[in-house]
Write a protein that binds this DNA or RNA. Structure first.
Lengths: 132, 132
DNA sequence: AAGTAGTTTAGAACGATTTTAAAGTAAAAA
DNA sequence: TTTTTACTTTAAAATCGTTCTAAACTACTT
């Protein structure tokens, strides 16, 4: 399926700007990035785009499940093109994130989901620290 | 150990402002809060404090391990007085966090920590969604 | 081709957090 | 105790990521 079809299927009008972003992000390669990282990539691909459009687009892509946003207490939002359930190593010093595939983690026991709620995804974060 | 001693032990000079905050936070009760929440508590305890001091103090407390900061992609930093390794339910709609004690989660299998790094804590986040 | 609903944009606005630099205070030294 | 020193607090300004505004634009429908 090409990117235009992916956008249509997600209920998004395939505008010029969304196609530029889709061409960068939806290439099947897993990566973590910020809005600013993406703007740099857009610029170096010979295009340009308002930062507001980039934020709009990332929000839409996230809400449609085309990308994910990582839970992280960094001051800048981090997005992830790996939309499968998976986990992360986090170096808190540098903010570097490394993917952990879902099958590398095995939860023997999970707590009961609170009354009135549904499980909406489990994320394991392993904080790591450079050895000295 | 009283709060003055706790601050000293953590390497922090026990100033008037830090004592006010320690008296609110270090009472052994687990809670999640933002800088603004804390300022409100300070105000309603009859004290007042510059927001810059509150941020300074929270950062120092966090760096000394007196409190933790929760990994969350909310726009406002969330702190936690529960400094034991533990986990959270997160309602992404409302941002509400609910503690999960460490013994309620059991990891059968963990991935190998990357070369040159040490494990510095595991956090499990279970995203939950209100049932409709 | 015309209409309309959704999209993009620059720039302003916003909110959380940090910085600045001056005044204040705790601890150490004399 | 007084002096000195290093650290802390403060209000206000600055910064930074993100969102809003409202006007211009564009994809899709009729």
């Amino acid at each position: 399926m090409n990117n235009k079809e992916k956008l249509r299927k997600a209920g998004l009008r395939p505008t010029k700007q969304r196609m530029i972003i889709a061409d960068i992000l939806l290439d099947g390669i897993d990566r973590h990035f910020t809005a600013e990282n993406l703007q740099n990539e857009i610029n170096s691909s010979g295009n340009s785009m308002s930062i507001a459009t980039i934020y709009n687009c990332l929000k839409k892509f996230r809400n449609c499940g085309l990308i994910k946003q990582v839970e992280s207490s960094k001051d800048t939002a981090i997005f992830d093109t790996n939309i499968n359930q998976h986990h992360h190593f986090l170096d808190e010093e540098t903010g570097e994130l490394i993917d952990i595939e879902n099958d590398e983690v095995n939860l023997r026991k999970l707590p009961k989901i609170p009354q009135g709620y549904l499980n909406n995804g489990v994320e394991v974060l392993i904080k790591i620290k450079k050895q000295i």
